[in-house]
Design a protein around this nucleic acid. Sequence first.
DNA 1: TTTCCGGCTGATT
DNA 2: GAATCAGCCGGAA
Length: 103
Amino acid sequence: MQTFRTQVIEYIKKVPKGMVVSYGQVAAAAGSPRAARQVGGILRALNISDGNVPWWRVINNQGVISIKGNWTATKELQSELLKKDKVTASEHYTVDIAKHRFK
DNA sequence: TTTCCGGCTGATT
DNA sequence: GAATCAGCCGGAA
């Protein structure tokens, strides 16, 4: 294994259109079920140097875009992208992950 | 090597 | 339903 980061990126790249995954899910797929927080940090780096990684399909386990910092712009962008992926995103950045979670 | 800090999570209060 | 607590984890300092 290279880095946890690599695993995460690879996994996210596999997420099909119209589906979403939770941080914890990605972390688990990368080998560490509790490293969800780390996933968040990786995502932050991705949205800057995005490679073709559907980072917007990654949200927390509650199906909500919980970004806190000054990433408000990113939040809006994320919900926009989700809608384009045929994913129903509420006005409060909420997604029905129960129906769209990638497995 | 130790310490600290997070875009989290689940359980409890 | 909102707030709090405590694990758990990887990376940077």
